[in-house]
Design a protein around this nucleic acid. Structure first.
Lengths: 139, 139
DNA sequence: TCAATATACTACGAGGTTCGTATTATTCAA
DNA sequence: TTGAATAATACGAACCTCGTAGTATATTGA
């Protein structure tokens, strides 16, 4: 299998650069200041993995455990997330979203979804499946 | 032209999520603490547009002008960038990279390039052209 | 059993980043 | 020439990240 050409690499770089600029979700956090990037990631992760712990989150996103501790603190103060002590291991903390948190997470999800939908809309129906296949292959 | 299906949107979301996690460039800023994200963007932008001004940079990346002022200050202190007063408009500032800055920008560029090359390598030579075409179309 | 060690997390504070307001310098317009 | 607009910086408040130290609980091994 031959190497990608320099021109191909440059073309991809340019295209991804434009893509990143075009699809940059506007962070209109309803009701207050916008959430920090890590906070949004945590919200998404806890939505997908209810009851997970801070250590798990820290490992997933490659940040310090104390950073997650601060972030979950922020989110708890805002009423988006709650921390429970499970009885199996009383050192641990189980993270769960409140109703407000779930609503917020769903709103984020929707923003991402409509962004991805807009991307796919620019391709023909035939191309869409191919594109998704290729991205999956790369990832 | 029909809409993308919800499943396609979800598949793309999942694939891009994995892709983002897989291709996250390790920020080994040589000689000191790593640069902030905006600093790297500025370095790249000034490399591509020598002599541009802070306002231009702020508009390009959608951040406050004062943020760019702080950032260029950081970069200047590190000896990566210099600010000159052009004689045409003495209010303005022309940003340019020093030799060290150019070296650093080139290193960043190389990291991105090898990342993009790795992505393309996962596709067959025939697929690569198609993929680049599609990404360009979306962007 | 119980002491030593490991594990899960939080408290606190230092260092750094962003951005709004106020300010300086320069240019443009009437 | 004076007033408004433009380009940028100074300063400070608010915030984020992470290292160190500390608390509470679980596990291990003599």
């Amino acid at each position: 299998m031959s190497e990608p050409t320099d021109e191909q690499v440059a073309d991809l770089a340019g295209a991804l650069d434009r893509l990143g600029r075009r699809f940059k979700l506007s962070d209109t956090a309803q009701g207050g200041r916008p959430l920090a990037e890590i906070d949004k990631l945590i919200l998404q992760h806890v939505a997908a993995h209810p009851g997970c712990g801070p250590s798990d989150v820290a490992r997933t996103f490659g940040v310090a455990l104390t950073t997650i501790s601060s972030a979950t603190d922020r989110l708890a103060k805002r009423g988006l997330l709650e921390r429970l002590r499970p009885s199996e291991d009383r050192r641990a903390v189980a993270l769960d979203l409140t109703e407000a948190g779930k609503t917020h997470a769903r709103a984020l999800q929707d923003m991402y979804q409509s962004m991805f939908r807009d991307m796919l809309r620019r391709l023909t129906p035939a191309e869409r499946a191919v594109f998704i296949e290729m991205v999956s292959k790369i990832a």
